[in-house]
């Protein structure tokens, strides 16, 4: 199980990487943390002609508060996000999700940007970013553009990023006082990709759900904002009737995949269980705050 032949270039700058992307198109792959790309290379499932290693591009690194947004550089390692005081303080949802991301050795190398760029349907970070209304900054040799998370995730491993673009950073609005977030997922084993998962961000006033973003992942081809379920709970107190309405609406929001991890029916069931548990917890957290 050895990787097929390829060429390798260590990018000296973002512009260098972009020029190589322009030159090689989809025959090139960006190598960031490599925790998803390397297995596919070793298994010969992926056959790029050129790997563009961006690991030494300082411009893509770092985590910092910028006004009312947190900038997470695409090359921020999972471990940096996990240990970041900025994230812990301003993005509690991501802080809660982070321990679910793989294992220590993978977190030491895998990157936030890599996870968002690949958009694995079971990955935690895309779901969190979508729940928090993040903006992704991508860059090509023509310049930079911003893509709202809401329009970034297109399908199975499919995003709005073009072949000639590199994901540079994510800009994530800080979680405002008065809001709560809850992250839940169900994975067969700790650190595995989940079978069902929910990233929830809400404002709950005196038991009434004023605003909410419920993003479901793992069961769907892409992280999915459950607009109908959200509509069912918005402006309502969290009681049996609201819950039943939300769980019913979920059947229209979600279109779970049947795969090795289970049937679509089971995944819908699990997402409903998570919905109940997450909003119970959100309400409890709001009350405690």
């Amino acid at each position: 199980m050895k990787a097929p032949k390829f060429s390798y270039v260590r990018a000296e700058s973002v512009d260098h990487a972009l020029a190589l992307l322009d030159q090689h198109g989809d025959e090139a792959r960006i190598l960031a943390g490599g925790q998803s790309l390397m297995p596919t290379l070793n298994m010969r499932l992926s056959r790029p002609q050129l790997l563009i290693d961006i690991n030494r591009l300082d411009a893509l690194k770092g985590i910092a508060l910028q006004g009312d947004r947190v900038r997470i550089g695409a090359l921020a390692r999972h471990v940096e996000v996990l240990n970041s005081p900025v994230v812990a303080k301003n993005l509690p949802l991501i802080a809660e999700a982070m321990p679910h991301v793989a294992h220590v050795a993978v977190r030491n190398r895998g990157t936030f940007g890599g996870s968002v760029a690949l958009a694995d349907p079971a990955a935690e970070m895309p779901a969190c970013a979508l729940a928090l209304g993040a903006t992704f900054v991508v860059q090509s040799s023509k310049g930079r553009r911003e893509i709202a998370a809401d329009s970034y995730f297109k399908g199975l491993y499919e995003t709005a990023r073009a072949v000639n673009e590199i994901l540079v950073e994510a800009l994530i609005p800080v979680e405002k006082p008065g809001t709560v977030s809850v992250f839940l997922e169900l994975a067969r084993r700790h650190g595995d990709f989940a079978m069902a998962g929910l990233a929830c961000h809400a404002r709950i006033d005196k038991g009434v759900i004023a605003e909410a973003r419920l993003v479901y992942f793992a069961s769907e081809v892409r992280p999915t904002l459950a607009t109908r379920a959200i509509a069912a709970i918005k402006g309502k107190p969290w009681n049996d009737a609201t819950r039943d309405a939300a769980l019913a609406a979920l059947a229209d929001d979600l279109d779970p995949m049947t795969n090795l991890h289970g049937s679509a029916a089971m995944k819908l069931h699990l997402q409903r269980v998570l919905t109940r548990r997450a909003i119970d917890q959100a309400v409890a957290r709001a009350r405690a705050a």
Partner: peptide, 18 residues
């Protein structure tokens, strides 16, 4: 698993050239 620049990583998920 090996240690690279002070932290444990998967040695099969990193190229030697890196």
């Amino acid at each position: 698993s090996v240690r690279v620049d002070g932290v444990v990583v998967r040695g099969c998920l990193m190229l030697a050239v890196q």
